[in-house]
């Protein structure tokens, strides 16, 4: 990736992060932790790697993007509105009565959302169904699925991973947001996932382990994923929950938290890089 493109993507991620903080902040409460941790990965998918056209959101040949950790909806909405899937003014309706932007992603409410998620553990199965259907249709699209690490405690994730590995679904690119925190505390304290890369390798995935806030590493990993045709892909994103929101980063209770106007305005007005 050229420096110019990297700095442009980095700036884009910074802007998306601010939009997401403002969106949740204006509502006053939300899943800030898991929204912040996935910003760089989503920016890379939507602005660098995915074959999508906001003008034709239901195009048959488009790549599909499933936010299986559905509570990260505001991160996706910041991007979709920036790309023009819908007007940016909608962002201030997040979670308001009658909104088309619910906290958890909903394919029937929001233009640009490819699969409904929110009840954790279900997105990967749907992604496998899409990957199988795409192969059947000789549709060259890729299917991106973003999983949470806490979410991976759901048994269905492993039912699904077994099938994806068994069917060698190389058009499937799964990204695991390993921010190490779930609602009640640290994943490793509650029901540990490590060694997570070994687990996915054992399920016959092509596994890469990257810094989930380093756009260049994420982009390279996705390029590598697209270049191999043998296995489904797992990109483990080592992330920080709440990343870039000073009131949330490193706070173990940042899964969902109340945010005052002062808190979000301070972040949104920050100049320069988040880090």
């Amino acid at each position: 990736m050229e420096n110019k493109e990297l700095s442009s993507l980095t700036e884009k991620a910074r802007q998306i992060r601010k939009d997401a903080i403002e969106m949740i902040g204006r509502f006053g409460v939300g899943h800030i932790g898991g929204v912040m941790s996935i910003i760089e990965a989503l920016t890379t998918i939507y602005y660098y790697s995915a074959n999508i056209d906001p003008k034709v959101p239901r195009a048959q040949g488009r790549d599909r993007i499933i936010m299986s950790k559905g509570h990260a909806g505001p991160a996706v909405y910041s991007i979709l509105s920036d790309l023009g899937y819908f007007d940016k003014s909608l962002n201030s309706t997040l979670n308001q009565n009658g909104t088309s932007l619910p906290s958890h992603c909903d394919m029937n409410k929001t233009v640009g959302i490819d699969m409904t998620a929110g009840s954790l553990g279900q997105g990967l199965s749907a992604g496998i169904g899409m990957a199988l259907a795409a192969k059947l249709d000789k549709n060259p699209c890729n299917i991106y699925v973003v999983l949470g690490d806490g979410e991976s405690q759901e048994g269905q994730v492993w039912e699904a991973s077994m099938l994806a590995g068994s069917k060698k679904l190389s058009n499937l690119i799964v990204l695991l947001d390993s921010n190490r925190l779930q609602l009640d505390g640290y994943v490793e304290d509650i029901n540990g996932l490590e060694p997570i890369t070994d687990k996915w390798r054992a399920f016959n995935f092509f596994v890469q382990d990257v810094d989930g806030h380093n756009i260049e590493e994420i982009a390279n990993a996705i390029d590598n994923a697209k270049a191999q045709n043998e296995k489904p892909n797992m990109i483990v994103l080592r992330t920080i929950k709440g990343k870039g929101a000073s009131f949330a980063e490193g706070i173990s209770a940042c899964h969902s938290m109340a945010i005052s106007e002062e808190m979000w305005r301070k972040e949104v007005c920050k100049e320069g890089k988040n880090d």
Binding site: A126, M130, L132, A133, A134, L163
Partner: peptide
Amino acid sequence: AEANMIGVAAGMATFG
């Protein structure tokens, strides 16, 4: 793996 079967079916249905 019935739960996965239902999810896979749902994903296929999004492709028509």
